[in-house]
Amino acid sequence: MTDDKCAREINWAGGTHTLTLADRWVQRVVSWRGINGYSPSAALARFETGSYTADDVERVIELGLLGGQTPEREVEALLDTHVRGKPLAPNVLIAHQVLAALFVGDAQ
């Protein structure tokens, strides 16, 4: 596990993955483009009110995996196999957890 207080180790897709949106590169992407055009707080509000889209779920997981240092090719394979075109509910929980961690930091 990393020293990143916003990182989460998540058992998903047949393994344990580190996801974080607090990575410097991810922060630059989010500051420039947002999460599908929304600030992190607006994106979190969309998850909390149930007004997220499948693209929101995919983008948060994608950025979280990249922030957790998962190689880009592996991220694409994981998204293709476990997110794109799959039921939303399991992935919504993961995306919400990763996004909320950006605000609350260490869960303990």
Rank of each mutant, 00 (worst) to 15 (best):
S41T: 14
V30S: 04
W12V: 04
I10W: 07
G85D: 00
I35D: 00
R73N: 13
S31D: 15
R28S: 12
N91R: 08
D3M: 12
Q108N: 13
V75R: 02
Y38W: 10
E62N: 08
V75F: 03
S31M: 10
S41P: 05
L93K: 10
G37S: 08
T20Y: 09
Y38L: 12
A22Y: 13
W32Q: 11
L66C: 06
A43M: 12
L88M: 13
Y52V: 06
E72P: 05
V26Q: 02
D56G: 08
A7H: 05
E76G: 05
A42I: 12
E58H: 07
L44R: 15
E62M: 09
L19Q: 04
A101H: 09
M1A: 10
S51K: 14
R24Y: 10
R33W: 07
V57L: 00
P71R: 09
N91G: 02
N11I: 10
G15P: 05
R8N: 08
I61C: 03
L65Q: 01
H17E: 05
Q97M: 12
A95D: 00
L63D: 00
A101W: 12
T2C: 09
G85C: 00
P87Y: 00
A107P: 15
G85T: 00
I61F: 04
H96K: 15
F103Q: 14
K5R: 14
R84A: 04
G37C: 09
N36M: 10
S41I: 08
G68R: 01
T2S: 15
A54Y: 02
G85H: 00
R84N: 06
A13G: 03
G105T: 07
A101N: 11
T20I: 10
W12Y: 09
S39I: 05
D3Y: 14
V60G: 01
L44G: 07
D3H: 13
G34T: 09
G34M: 06
V83D: 00
F47N: 07
G68Q: 03
E62A: 03
Y52L: 12
S41G: 06
L78S: 00
V26N: 03
A22N: 15
I94C: 01
A100D: 14
C6M: 14
T16A: 13
D4R: 11
A95T: 05
Q27L: 15
P40V: 11
G15H: 07
V29K: 11
D106G: 10
T53F: 03
L78H: 01
Q108C: 09
F47A: 07
A45H: 15
G34F: 10
P40R: 15
D3E: 13
N91S: 12
V57E: 00
L99T: 02
N11S: 13
N11Y: 12
D23I: 04
V29A: 08
G50Y: 09
P90K: 01
L99G: 00
I61L: 08
P90A: 05
V60D: 01
L44W: 10
L44T: 08
T18H: 05
A7V: 06
Q69R: 13
A22W: 14
T20G: 07
A54F: 02
G37V: 07
G14L: 03
G15E: 06
A100F: 11
V75L: 03
A107S: 15
Y38P: 02
A107E: 15
S39K: 15
V92G: 01
G37P: 07
E72G: 05
A43I: 04
R46Y: 10
R84H: 08
K5M: 14
